[in-house]
Amino acid sequence: MERISITLALASASLRSEFQYRANAMMSVIGGIIYQLTGFLIVWIIVNRFNTIGGWSLAEITFLYGMRLTSHGIFYMCFSQLFELDRVLITGEFDRFLVRPLSPLLQLFTRKLRVNCFGDLIGGGALLAFAWRGLDIDWSPLAVGYLLLAVVGGALVEGAVQIAMGALSFRFLNTIALRTTINEVFNQYGNYPQRIFPPLLQYVLTFGLPVAFVAYFPASTVLDRSNELLVSPWLAAAAPLVGLALFLLALRIWRRASRRYQSSGN
C-alpha cells in the first residue's frame, strides 16, 4: 500500500516538473500528435485510393491503428524511462535507486515523464473515436470492457519486451540502439493487419516478437475477424492475459539480471 502511494507521489512530481516549462511541454505534445498523424496519413492515402488494405476497410484499420497507438501511449507514459536505462547505469545513478526503500524499477519508471506520450494518447483516442462511427459493432458493456483490457494489455506487452531487453543492459551496458530498433518494429508493424505479411513473418511477429498481441489480435477479436488468423481465435482473444503473463515474466527476468549489477563506481 505504502509502495503504491510513494510511486504515485514520485510520478506526480515528475508530471509537475515537466509542465513547469509549459510552452516546451505543449510543443512536445503537439509534435507527438503530428508525428503519429503523418504515420496515419500513409494509411489514409492508400485506403483512400485503393479502398482496402488486405481486405480491411478504412474504419477497421483506423480502429487497429487507434488501439495500437493508445496502448503505445500508455506504455510510453509508464515506461519511457527504460530508454534512459543505459545512462542511468553508466553514470552510476542506479546506485542511488538501490539505497532507497522502493524497488529500483519503480524508481526508474517515475524518474521523469516524457510528455509526448500525451500526443500518442490524444492521437490514439481520436482515431478510435473516428473509427467508432464507421464500424458496425454492438458496443455491449462486455465489448467495451474487453477493449479497455486489451489496450492496457497491449501496453503491458510492449512494456514486457522493453523490460526484458533492458535487463540485458546489466551485462552489456549499451543496448539502447537494439531496443529502439525493436521499439520501431512495434511502431511500424503493429499498425497494420498482419495478414498482408507472408505466414513466416506472421509467426515471427507472434511468437518471436509478440507484436501481434499488442493490437492486431484483440482488434481482430473485436472486429469479428479472428477466423482469418493463423492462430486459434482463443489465443487471439486472450491477448490481454498474454500481456499480463509476459509482463510478469519480464519482471522475473529483470530481477534475476539486476542481481548482476556492478556499479560503474564513481
Partner: peptide, 8 residues
C-alpha cells in the same frame, strides 16, 4: 508489403 497488398 503494404503497397503490394493495396495493389492486390
Amino acid at each position: 508489403v503494404i503497397w503490394q497488398a493495396a495493389y492486390g
